[in-house]
């Protein structure tokens, strides 16, 4: 009789694991970049990106992005114009060139850009100091021509954003890193993944 109950044990264990796994769905999975739209360098990629507004309502923006190139960066925008970027031992700085085609009324601030190298390491662009240079926060809007904020208000002093424009984002990597693809996202779970054709 008692041995028959042993058969129930695996079922109970499975139920325990499933009950625990619900926490992954609630707390972990929604924060992961799992809704991937893939494309290739030089090809226009249409994106539909979901985001949550201040009231917690889901909103959606549609845009087209093209990865133009990823090249070693030679200069950075300083206070009085472009300044040469001096190499720092152990690092490489890449310029990720992106073209956006998007309605000027769509908010686009707060984008994140990363380079995934051939070793699957992901370097995300951040504002940082590298040697004597200050690298800026990544921006997916042209300087001085930002679109609306997320509350719909305009950025004071800025001109309207053109419907098509290019941006350059600086990304620091290990000096041995070989870029394999570029990732672009705002809020999880949507992410665009653009492979380099030179790979």
């Amino acid at each position: 009789m008692s041995r028959r109950w042993l058969l129930v044990l695996p079922v109970a264990l499975v139920l325990v694991v499933l009950a625990t796994a619900s926490r992954l769905q609630v707390f972990w999975w929604p924060e992961q970049l799992h809704d991937v739209t893939t494309g290739r360098q030089g090809e226009a990629l249409e994106l539909s990106d979901r985001w949550e507004d201040a009231d917690g309502d889901e909103r959606r923006r549609d845009l087209t992005v093209t990865l133009l190139d990823v090249v070693p960066a030679t200069q950075v925008e300083g206070f009085s114009g472009p300044e040469p970027l001096e190499p720092v031992a152990g690092t490489a700085v890449w310029e990720v060139r992106l073209r956006f085609e998007v309605d000027p009324d769509v908010p686009l601030s707060g984008c994140l850009v990363s380079i995934v190298d051939t070793d699957e390491r992901e370097a995300t662009a951040v504002s940082t100091r590298l040697g004597e240079a200050s690298l800026p926060q990544p921006a997916c809007e042209p300087a001085g021509r930002a679109g609306p904020r997320y509350d719909g208000s305009a950025v004071e002093g800025d001109l309207p954003r053109p419907p098509t424009y290019d941006v350059a984002v600086l990304v620091v990597t290990d000096e041995d890193a070989v870029p394999d693809r570029v990732r672009l996202w705002w809020e999880a779970p949507d992410v665009a993944e653009l492979s380099l054709t030179s790979r």
Partner: peptide
């Protein structure tokens, strides 16, 4: 301290 990319001290 500062945020650093993988492999960069």
């Amino acid at each position: 301290c500062a945020e650093s990319p993988p492999g960069v001290p």
